[in-house]
Design a protein around this nucleic acid. Structure first.
Lengths: 210, 210
DNA sequence: AAAAATTAGTTCCACAAGGAATTGACTACC
DNA sequence: GGTAGTCAATTCCTTGTGGAACTAATTTTT
């Protein structure tokens, strides 16, 4: 299924000699490879001939999903990615605080502080502190903020569906279930690690690394 | 399977009234929700009660994979993410050029230029131009660069396997196949769009957005 | 064959990101 | 019940990012 790509194999074969150290590259002797082909060949190698191919692939998926959507948000609403993430988060769960969004999404909290300030100044969100703990401020969407979410959401949903369209509904469910299985194991790992936690970074992150 | 999470439901239920506009949040009346529970509840909502849940989930996976690994690379080798991506790319396919990496990975080309310059200065990569087209410089790993890759790769592979460990081999294959199906459709879309291309951004990107 | 357009890489510059220290509010300890 | 430790949010400041303009090499157009 992934082998309908003769160009890349030719390239790989043509580089199987010791050209790496000499700096002499066996390209260009003939111009049989256009630059577009070279690019495709490299992308193909990155995604399919990669010892961490799985990681490369879902990175690629995430990139291909986010990049167009967030650049559209930027143009359409003048909001940065973090800023829109705040709006989106509040639409999902009203009353969440800045540091909760920070911890959950791994944006640094000062970045979030700026985003929250700007959104509040623009009138898209409101803050409210409560007597019980006056440190944290519960955020909520104003009607203006809600309107932005309402205007943006359809495109996000449509794009996701467009991406998943090549899969049948059963396949989509399978994909979701498998990803869920991976993620639930991650969560289990997280809570297990808490008993011996040392680091002081994002609670939702790190854990495995260093 | 995803419903063993009573806290989140309680939260959602307690916010089903019109508190968004008033700014009054129904928390804090009792302290039954610890902040950790709130965070987990929000993360849970983000991932499972999200109209773009699939996107949210693979974004989360990508984040959870990249963040620890690249911060380890930073500490261990003093290389930024882009810089390591260059090394990794050359290990995968020697002789690739800076702009090919840029197009394929969606890093801006000036960022890549800087990364390449630094790596060359550090002696990790070599450049070579060819008479045929003296604009582009073919990059290749030096033994030092290769050594870094060799030192880093096992951790990347191990971490990927650790992540996939909760799945059986068959499940891993299924997951890969489904993701492959999605991505191949993307590629097909890309080449199809070329016949009417207008935009001038990364050729491997955009397309769907704006 | 000269002029216009395209492409690889670099440089410039304004701005945003994020680490680290700070303030204000709360909690735990002894 | 006072002091040390923690936590949410902000501010400071350095660095890196990435858009845009630029140079040099090559291709295409007419």
């Amino acid at each position: 299924m992934t082998d309908n790509y003769p160009v890349e194999h030719a390239v790989a074969a043509s580089m199987a000699d010791g050209s790496a150290n000499t700096g002499i590259i066996p390209f260009g002797t003939g111009s049989e490879l256009l630059s577009r082909d070279r690019l495709d060949a490299f992308t193909h190698t990155r995604l399919w001939k990669n010892p961490c191919g799985f990681a490369a692939r879902f990175n690629y998926l995430a990139l291909r999903y986010n990049q167009p959507l967030y650049s559209w948000v930027e143009q359409e609403f003048g909001l940065s990615r973090v800023e829109f993430v705040v709006i989106y988060s509040l639409a999902l769960m009203d009353g969440v605080t800045a540091s909760e969004i920070a911890s959950s999404t791994a944006f640094p909290k000062n970045t979030l502080s700026r985003a929250v300030n700007r959104l509040a100044k623009l009138g898209y969100i409101g803050r409210s502190t409560q007597a019980m703990d006056r440190r944290m401020q519960y955020l909520s969407l104003t009607p203006f903020g809600q309107a932005i979410y309402d205007a943006a959401l359809p495109r996000f949903v449509a794009f996701e569906q467009e991406m998943l369209a090549p899969l049948s509904l059963v396949e989509q469910e399978t994909l979701n279930a498998l990803m869920a299985k991976v993620m639930l194991a991650m969560f289990a790992e997280d809570t297990k690690d808490d008993s011996e936690g040392d680091h002081e970074r994002h609670p939702a992150l790190v854990k495995h690394g260093a």
